[in-house]
Design a protein around this nucleic acid. Structure first.
Lengths: 199, 199
DNA sequence: GTCGTTATTCCTCATGTGGAGAATTCTGCT
DNA sequence: AGCAGAATTCTCCACATGAGGAATAACGAC
């Protein structure tokens, strides 16, 4: 921060981008807990209040620093859903596991606690999982009980991701994606297209 | 805290119990995030350092205040596992959902973020889920791949509990326990005793 | 020019954590 | 019994943090 100099900076000096870069470094180096907003601000040569002004609280700074908006998980899931209905469950599991292995493996351990700790973010999750990610897929299948099936698939998916990335439970968590797809795929398939007990 | 009065208190004055009671009140009234260690100490008429001395950090104070040691989920799961193998999956799901509905429904939303935020607690979870809770059950079934089956069951269970209590996904989250058992039971049954694809 | 808006800093407050030290109780020894 | 010293229990102080509000300076529309 420019010492003793209050008020707006002269034009042409973007502060958002430096803050974002500093946040990426900080979170990568020290993890979510140990990272501090103040240190991010110091790195960016900016006052902590500025960080707050642009990104709100720490969890929002964190998710912003991950640039999660760049990747669209829903698109990947939709791509996996193209093709025959047989084996759809396995393809779906495979796609999601691959996605997370490639892009989110390192960061999900950080994202989840942040999301869980923030009521606002948590409230968005069901909407995302149900409507955004799995909803279109299940509707395409033209089955009844689509919402129920969606939530069942979401529950199994959430469980797999949780035991793979968040609370590692052996030996499932260290199986290769193909094996996980083979093991869990039939379950998802049943939730998608199989017989469900009547209410 | 007794002002200006340093050092050990006269005998017979238990401080642990008042702190625990205060913590229960505080967490119940304000939730985990908003609750403060200092406020608990104030309520108990004790210095914050005393709280720290007895219970360590905030997450440990929290779990201590829940008295989670009193209930033994493993025993309930074992009880549900007594009986014929047919329908075991459904009975198991039912038992776990009932347990959480009755005893943990209100608090799990608070427990999970606290656990996730604490690396120590998180490290204990797999051990608990795998070995303590489900391990004996799967061993009793005398199947091969017992550890793998255990982790598969854990993944589906974790998913159900997550979508029911933590990130409510409709309509699954508001189904009665019997329906959830009917829906998810076959999956657990397959993970327990069904055919699994070879490695 | 003036005037509201926006971007930025500074200050304040309550918090979680850690350490130093004081008052009490306990232990071993004579 | 009596007493020195160790262990336990507890308070105070210090520190860095996350959050919010007030003050201030540059900008843009008119």
């Amino acid at each position: 921060m420019v010492e003793g100099r209050r008020g707006r900076r002269p034009a042409g000096q973007d502060t958002r981008e430096p803050v974002l870069a500093a946040a990426r470094e900080e979170f990568r180096e020290r993890g979510y807990e140990a990272a501090s907003v103040r240190s991010v601000a110091r790195r960016a040569g900016v006052d902590p209040g500025t960080v707050r002004h642009w990104f709100g609280d720490k969890t929002h700074l964190f998710t912003a620093s991950l640039g999660l908006a760049d990747v669209d998980p829903a698109a990947i899931v939709r791509a996996a859903a193209d093709g025959p209905v047989e084996g759809l469950g396995a393809r779906l599991v495979r796609a999601v596991v691959d996605l997370w292995d490639a892009d989110y493996g390192d960061t999900v351990r950080l994202v989840i606690p942040a999301v869980m700790a923030d009521p606002g973010l948590r409230a968005l999750l069901p909407q995302f999982l149900g409507a955004e990610l799995l909803g279109p897929l299940v509707r395409r299948l033209d089955v009844d009980d689509a919402p129920l099936r969606t939530s069942l698939v979401a529950s199994q998916m959430a469980g797999v991701l949780m035991t793979r990335y968040l609370v590692p439970i052996e030996p499932l968590c260290s199986q290769p994606p193909a094996r996980i797809a083979a093991l869990v795929g039939p379950t998802v398939q049943r939730y998608l297209t199989g017989d469900l007990p009547p209410a």
